[in-house]
Amino acid sequence: MPRNRWHRFALIPTITAAVLGLAAGPATGRVPGGAEPAGWVAGGAPEAGAAAVGRGAPYLYLGWGNPPAPATVMRATGVRWFTMAFVLSGGGCTPAWDGTRPLQGGVDARAIAEIRAAGGDIVPSIGGWSGNKLGPNCSTPEALAGAYQRVIDAYRLTAIDIDIENTDEFENPAVQDRILRALAIVERNNPGIRTIVTFGTTTSGPNYWGNRLIERARDLGADIDVFTIMPFNFGGGADMYRGTVSAAEGLRTKLMSVFGWSAATAYAHMGISGMNGLSDQREVTSPATWTQIRDWARARGLARLSFWSVNRDRGCPGGGVTSHCSGIAQADWEFTRITAGF
């Protein structure tokens, strides 16, 4: 099953943004003994405000697709969190936005400051499909953890997302293990950090490599907070609600088996990251379908809901699979508004 998102192949910075100072983000503390800190209530709704770390956080990508001003989207929809994409290798084991833009002083930092000034925050997505990844370029878990730490320190982050969909990372046992060992180091060095891994799926749940990732997270002591699946690109004509639910239930079963969790605890460690409108394989997720998925996820206490992407959250019926709109008829920012209700 292909896991690539077509958009990952176009990494052309095109945004302009107002120059803003970088605001400091909130800090939280991991509770000793594995208890969940505020905002991550197992099997239930999150607490209000910034403590609900990245629960409903659609992707915002500043590399292409006529990226909107995030504060404009926040005012229109009520969303407070964004997943900012993508941190890659800027050369060797050095992190950079899209591998080209600096962590500080560029459009990405200014967008983060704008989001925080409007009362929100971000989760960075490290990885993705296209571009040069940190996982293969950092030679040891310690070096990779250091690269992650540079991103955390740049923005005083409360959460990071490792998008491990590219085959150089996902289907490479040594790199999978390196990422998980690095995340274990990050968790020890940053009490309270929320660690998320995002990867592809089949309609029945994780494939061989996804199952390995989960099993090795247990074996290596990587206390991953959220395992997020990308339930799309199943094949043309798929029922996206049924396929998403089936994939998520497969993930739940796997987490229960590997960690010995109850269903409620497994759900509380799960996330869904969809693709609004047309997927790469022209599957259709309509606003009504996304609402169904959101309501299913909310009722079961999932930890995270995201989609690719805010850039595409504009209507263009007949527009095909493109970077700046969804390819279907919809109101602007409709998927973001639905996600804000998570």
Score class of each variant (00 low, 15 high):
M74E: 11
G90K: 06
G99Q: 07
I115M: 06
E47S: 08
P95I: 07
A48D: 15
A51P: 14
W97H: 08
G128C: 09
R75K: 15
L60W: 11
P67N: 02
A71D: 15
L60A: 01
M74Y: 11
A96H: 04
V53Q: 05
R116Q: 09
I126P: 13
L103V: 06
N132G: 04
G135V: 03
D108V: 12
I115R: 04
A111I: 07
K133R: 13
A118C: 07
L62E: 00
M84E: 07
G105C: 05
T72M: 03
R101P: 04
F86T: 04
V73T: 12
G43T: 03
D121S: 13
T94Q: 15
V79S: 12
A85C: 12
G65T: 00
P46F: 11
T100V: 14
E114I: 13
M84I: 15
A52E: 08
R110W: 12
Y59Q: 02
G119W: 09
C93A: 14
A45S: 12
G119C: 11
I115P: 15
R75Y: 00
V53T: 11
G106F: 12
A76W: 13
P67H: 01
S130L: 01
A51I: 12
P136H: 06
C93Q: 12
M84H: 02
T140S: 14
S125I: 11
P70A: 05
D108S: 06
I122R: 05
C93W: 13
G90L: 04
L88W: 05
T100Y: 00
G120H: 12
T94C: 04
F86S: 09
A111G: 00
V53R: 13
P68T: 02
W81P: 15
A76C: 05
T77W: 09
W40G: 05
V87F: 00
A52N: 14
G91P: 14
K133Q: 15
G119E: 07
P58Y: 04
K133Y: 02
T83R: 02
A111R: 13
N137R: 01
N132T: 15
T83Q: 11
I122M: 10
V41N: 15
A51F: 07
